[in-house]
Each structure stands twice: as C-alpha cells, then as structure tokens.
C-alpha cells in the first residue's frame, strides 16, 4: 500500500469506529498541482485525502485550543516529522487535549517547492507529479518539463532532521530513512548570513523587511502562536509596534514573534511559505534555533518530556559574566 492509501485506510477506520469525529489531512484543490488542507467527516469521503510532494501545510495549526467550531470533537490529524514537533511543542505546554487526538505520522522524503517551480514558467501550472527523484510539471498550455527534485526542495526540507514523526498513534507506511541525529545539525544557511559584515546585514535586513505588509499571515499560520486576537503585535496598550508600517517596525514585529516562539519553534517553515511577499523568515528562526542548540543542545518539540527552554532554568546555567 502506498502512503496515500495507508492514510485513507487509517482515516476510514478512525471515522467509522467513531474514534474521531473529523479527520484533518490534505486534498487536491482545483487541479493536481494544488494541495490544500482537508477536513473529512465521513468514512466514505476519505478518498479525497492525498499524500504527495505538495503536502507542505503544517496541519497542527488547526489544533490551537481556541479553535472553537466543535469544542468537544475528537480530531484525527496527519503530521509529517516537522509538523509532529510543533504538535509536541503544543503538548509540552498542555495546549492540546491529547485525549481527543488521533495522530497519524506520515514519513516524508522531502517536498517540492511549488513557488520555486512557478518561477520557471510564464504560464499557469496544472499538474505536478514526482517519481524516482524527477518532478514533472505540466502547464495549462500543455508544456511539460522535468526537474531534478533535489534542486526544487522546500527550504525546510533542506535542513530536515526528522523525516518520521516524533509522536504518532499510527504511522502511514514504512518509516523513511532517518538522518543521523547524533551528528550536529548543519546551519550553512545561517552561517552564510553571519559571514557578512554588520553593515551588510543591516542593509539587507532593512531591504527585506521594508516589503512586509503586516498581513499577519505568518502569525496566523504558525502552529505555536496562539494568542490570536490578543496578540501583542495588535495591542495598543502596551504598544510595541505602531500601525504605521515601516521597515524598523516590521523587524520589531517579527522579532516579537520570534522571541515569543523561541524554544518552541522547530523551523517547520510554515511562516516562510505563507508570506505573500516571500520574506525569508527562515533567516531569523533558523538563527534563533542555531543559538538555542548551541546554548542548550535542545531541539524544540523533539521530545515530549522536555520543557521548552525559556520556561525553566538550571541554577548551573553558565551564560553571561
């Protein structure tokens, strides 16, 4: 059975036995090149669920406690390795009700960056399929081109160390081959930026953050961001960011987000993918996670019995003078 079939079978069983009231996965949107989150209520409808190289969405964002449409419902959900870490981060803080959850781990070999592929064409893409490391893209006008998948991976897949879910009730198919987690994580993307001079970094960041339009997409999609309407970025009392949008304010806005998710963000990449103006937020959260790893050898959301590092302390912490 393919992973897609496994997911459908597990969802069907869970829905028909009443283990869950609804099941969150992915489905095709208006053509095979588009995948969107799916909410399946009936066991007969599970065939809409898909698993392919476009299933990037971190579905755990729908679990945040304030999602009140169906407050007592039992929920089934698909999580990739990266998604499972945000799930664990939410569990570490008791923000999801584990009794009501049924978690299906989906082993993942890397996903394709649709946005990057779009830039290769002037025409609308209608189909994307992958097989044996090659991505075949077909456009509306019938043009088909092949690309090596390795060159068109999502940025988040480039730094992935958790191909299998760290927490799952059931797993859809055989596990993916795991990276050696005893090896130190690699941070070449961050190191490249660090290598620039202070002035260069300053100028680049200003240019990048000047384009932010404060649409809040990054904050809305982030699974560990749960303050919703009370978000301090919207607050007028105290006022940390003004509604007048300027580059400096935009950077403070993002740093508020970053510092509030510090220790809980596993760099799943959802924020990068959600940004309509393609701000590389990974520049910030990857740097943050690099420093957190350096300080504590801690990977957010990797182990359920750990405490997020900024919610606790050790008397022996040796920082500062």
């Amino acid at each position: 059975m393919s992973r897609q079939d496994e997911i459908r079978e597990l969802a069907r069983v869970a829905l028909s036995t009443g283990r869950v009231d609804y099941f969150i996965g992915w489905r095709e949107a208006y053509n095979p090149s588009e995948v969107v989150p799916a909410f399946v209520d009936e066991p007969d409808s599970v065939d809409q669920l898909v698993w392919n190289d476009l299933c990037a969405h971190n579905l755990t964002t729908f679990l945040k406690r304030k999602m009140n449409d169906r407050p007592n419902a039992k929920v089934g959900i698909c999580v990739k390795g990266c998604d499972s870490r945000t799930l664990v981060a939410l569990m570490q803080e008791n923000l999801v009700d584990r009794e009501r959850l049924y978690v299906v781990g989906v082993p993942c070999d890397g996903l394709v960056d649709r946005r990057k592929l779009e830039k290769e064409f002037s025409d609308e893409i209608i189909d994307i399929t992958t097989s044996n490391g090659t991505v075949s893209v077909t456009t509306h006008q019938g043009l088909t081109r092949d690309f090596p998948k390795a060159d068109y991976l999502l940025a988040a897949c480039g730094w992935c160390r958790y191909k299998n879910a760290v927490y799952a009730d059931d797993v859809a198919g055989p596990p993916a081959e795991e990276a050696d987690r005893h090896a130190k994580p690699v941070w070449t993307d961050v190191e490249a930026f660090e290598a620039l001079s202070d002035g260069e970094r300053d100028a680049m960041l200003e240019e990048i953050f000047a384009t932010c339009i404060r649409c809040f997409a990054c904050i809305n999609v982030c699974p560990v961001c749960y303050c919703w309407d009370q978000c301090v970025n919207r607050s007028r009392r105290p006022e940390l960011v003004s509604q007048k949008v300027d580059a400096k304010g935009n950077l403070v806005f993002q740093m508020v987000h970053m510092l509030h998710v510090a220790g809980r963000c596993p760099s799943c990449g959802a924020c990068d993918r959600a940004c309509p103006v393609e701000i590389p937020l990974s520049l910030l959260h990857r740097k943050m996670n690099k420093e957190i790893y350096d300080m504590f050898e801690f990977e957010p959301g990797a182990k359920l019995d750990e405490m997020p590092v900024f919610q606790c302390f050790k008397i022996e912490d040796a920082f500062g003078d």
Binding site: Q230, E239, L240, Q311
Partner: peptide, 19 residues
C-alpha cells in the same frame, strides 16, 4: 515579561511606563 499576550500589568512598573 513571560506572558506572550502582555496582559499582566505590574502595578508601579507598567510596560507602557517603561516604553
């Protein structure tokens, strides 16, 4: 300082005063 929503105010040292 820990509250992510900043909904706790410390009388005598409110955040707005410091800002």
């Amino acid at each position: 300082a820990t509250c992510p929503v900043n909904c706790i105010s410390l009388k005598g040292f409110p955040t707005d005063a410091l800002l």
